[in-house]
């Protein structure tokens, strides 16, 4: 049995905060859950917060890229927030640059970014 990561809804945005080192099945479950919830809620945006993650390998990296691609097809924008410097340096060396994924320094900035893009919420001055 793998644990499921909670997907929170804040207005038009779905928020996922990955708090622990996930085993591969949980990663796949999360990808699936997110797609379902986007359709179910009609969400315009998805924020994935990885501030707590100490590594991102190619398996998690692929999930992030795939989720961004899926949500785009479902008319939602994905923003990845909080990647640590060491994780970013390692991911680049691994050979993944997540070209199609939007990123932000913090959760706050990520939410603001979606606000600007989709007309949801206040946006940034």
């Amino acid at each position: 049995m793998s644990e499921r990561i909670p997907v929170l809804r804040i207005g038009d945005v779905l928020l996922v905060s990955i708090q622990t080192d996930l085993e591969d099945q949980s990663v796949l479950d999360l990808q699936e859950d997110l797609a379902e919830r986007i359709v179910e809620t009609g969400a315009q945006g998805v924020v994935i917060d990885i501030t707590a993650l100490e590594i991102v390998d190619s398996f998690v990296g692929r999930m992030l890229a795939t989720t961004a691609a899926i949500s785009r097809i479902l008319d939602a924008e994905t923003v990845l927030v909080g990647m640590r410097p060491a994780v970013a340096i390692t991911l680049v060396e691994l050979g993944l640059s997540l070209g199609g994924v939007r990123t932000a320094l913090s959760l706050e900035r990520g939410l603001a970014m979606l606000g600007r893009a989709g007309g949801v919420g206040a946006g940034r001055a």
């Binding site: 680049v92 990123t103 900035r109």
Partner: peptide, 12 residues
């Protein structure tokens, strides 16, 4: 070059 890409991954 890698630093620029890493910064982008972090949202900068």
């Amino acid at each position: 070059l890698k630093t620029v890409v890493a910064a982008r991954l972090m949202g900068a």
